[in-house]
Nucleic acid binder design. Structure first.
Lengths: 135, 135
DNA sequence: ATAATTGCAAATGCTTTGCTTGTGA
DNA sequence: TCACAAGCAAAGCATTTGCAATTAT
């Protein structure tokens, strides 16, 4: 059983055949597929799964904290399995490649900024857009 | 003449009656209106301006670097006049209020992170989501 | 058994576009 | 004048939803 299925069990999310397949595909994915791409991947396992079900499942998993949704610049929503340790993303503006990174100092400063403004930081979005330095 | 009109002149952007009105409304706006809201505001000056023109103008101004487009969580695109000094945003998750802030230290760290990953930072998006601390 | 889930197609909401008429430089 | 812009309505695209049939517990 894959890790997403386990999380569903733990959270009491009903496991249907379709959800199991979507869970499996997302567990294996190392990238950040959009719904269309995800639908293609699950279709190769069971071609009867509709895109509506993929949309519904992905939203369900997101609300359960199992998947994370990203809305990068001017594109469709992309998903990844919620990581144990939070990370942000750098997007290669030429290739579209997505690189994950962690920076504790930035995180800390974000908290301080929010606090200074009289807010408790609940969530944040940090995306860097860059082009590869050739050397 | 408002500041957006001036920028249009400088950049050789043709000034029509509609564009002048949109420029004026955006110059006066201290918030971050979406296209619908902007259309409402310009309509009160000239009710014949179509929403298609507002969409086209806002995109034109953005491409000319006159307006900045923001796509905050799960909503429609919002616009503000391109500021002289870059700033980021903190969004009140309860009221929707948007607070602007500047943090040079975070900016610096972003550049360092990108560099460390072998990238030249071209653009970035930083959004904080928080709830007001009552005291 | 029965409440939840699916597939399908239709509907939605934001945004863009084709086309004809109008207009700024 | 005449290339470009506006208005209108239709199209586009990602996403959501109503409904009847199916399925998990």
């Amino acid at each position: 059983m894959n890790s997403i299925e386990e999380k569903c069990k733990k959270k009491g999310v009903r496991l249907t055949e379709q959800r199991k397949i979507i869970a499996e595909v997302m567990s294996e994915s190392k990238d950040h597929p959009d719904v269309d791409e995800l639908h293609k991947r699950v279709s190769s396992v069971d071609k009867k799964i509709s895109i509506a079900t993929v949309y519904r499942t992905v939203k369900l998993f997101e609300e359960a904290g199992i998947l994370e949704k990203h809305e990068f610049k001017g594109g469709k929503a992309r998903y990844e399995q919620s990581p144990d340790e939070h990370h942000d993303h750098l997007i290669d503006i030429n290739s579209g490649e997505i690189i994950e990174f962690v920076d504790k100092d930035i995180e800390k400063l974000q908290n301080e900024v929010a606090k200074k403004l009289g807010y408790k930081l609940v969530d944040h979005k940090l995306e860097l857009y860059g082009s590869k330095i050739k050397k």
